[in-house]
């Protein structure tokens, strides 16, 4: 009889799960492309065509290329968390990966935590890269006093968008539908949130909608401490509150609707055909 060892430490398990997800991320070219390569190319194209224009907000003028660079940095963080999780978790569910973990003593929160931590790490790395490009080529400046506000904004936003991604992953019917649904949510939101098209005086409806949904508040909250004229030292708490509220809704939906498998059961034949369709 083997003497039982103590349970492995949760922190060590989360680190292993997150490292596993990071390894998977770099081995799935399409995930890397959509998360970092596509936003980077979009940034290059927009800024190549924007010229020497300025965007005027309440605190002064931004060069448009710097403004767009920070906005797309925020969008990259959303791709790495929301879009990435909403896409990949249903794929893993259809591959039976979630069901496999359900058969082991791995606590559920560690499994989900591993996904979320890896998404946050990818998000921070990608955002840092994009801001670095901004500093190097588009005149973005990151004052030391602004760094705590940037970090706090990224932390709240990435966790919230990760929760929203898990919520979409929980409710989408199939993996093939997940990609379309995630993009159908995030791309229209990006169009009205100053990500690709900076709008100085948008129509009232667009302005209201943009501020209700979480992407524009994130873009604003990341831009505020990086403003070239009047950078804010404190986080934009009211904007973060909107993002966190969406994150809380996402968290509740994700927990309540989480599904381990796509096949609610039945005979061997049905399960086989369901897994083959997946």
């Amino acid at each position: 009889m083997v003497d039982l060892q103590p349970w492995p430490r949760p922190l060590s398990l989360i680190v292993q799960q997150a490292a596993h997800q990071l390894r998977l991320f770099v081995r799935v070219p399409v995930a890397v492309f959509f998360t970092i390569a596509l936003p980077f190319v979009v940034l290059l194209v927009i800024n190549a065509t924007s010229g020497e224009r300025f965007f005027n907000d309440a605190n002064g003028d931004w060069p448009v290329d710097a403004f767009v660079c920070v906005a797309i940095s925020a969008f990259t963080a959303v791709s790495a968390t929301f879009t990435n999780l909403a896409n990949m978790v249903p794929i893993r569910r259809e591959e039976g990966v979630l069901q496999r973990w359900r058969s082991t003593p791995l606590p559920v929160w560690v499994l989900v935590g591993g996904h979320v931590v890896s998404a946050v790490v990818i998000s921070v790395l990608c955002t840092t890269f994009m801001l670095g490009v901004g500093v190097a080529f588009y005149g973005v400046s990151v004052p030391l006093m602004s760094i705590p506000a940037v970090v706090m904004t990224l932390l709240v936003a990435t966790l919230s968008f990760a929760a929203m991604g898990m919520a979409v992953a929980a409710v989408v019917p199939t993996a093939s539908a997940a990609s379309g649904i995630a993009n159908a949510i995030i791309l229209p939101m990006a169009l009205i949130s100053n990500v690709f098209i900076p709008m100085e005086e948008p129509p009232v409806v667009v302005e209201v909608l943009a501020n209700v949904f979480p992407l524009r508040p994130f873009v604003d909250a990341l831009q505020a401490p990086l403003h070239p004229v009047d950078p804010a030292a404190a986080p934009h708490w009211d904007r973060l509150a909107v993002i966190a509220a969406w994150g809380a809704v996402g968290f509740i939906v994700a927990v309540r609707q989480f599904r381990w498998n796509v096949t609610p059961g039945g005979s061997t034949r049905r399960r086989r055909s369901a897994s083959q369709q997946g």
Binding site: E95, G96, V97, R100, S103, R271, R272, S275
Partner: peptide, 8 residues
């Protein structure tokens, strides 16, 4: 399990 459940 019938479905392998291991990432390819």
């Amino acid at each position: 399990l019938q479905a392998s459940g291991i990432e390819p």
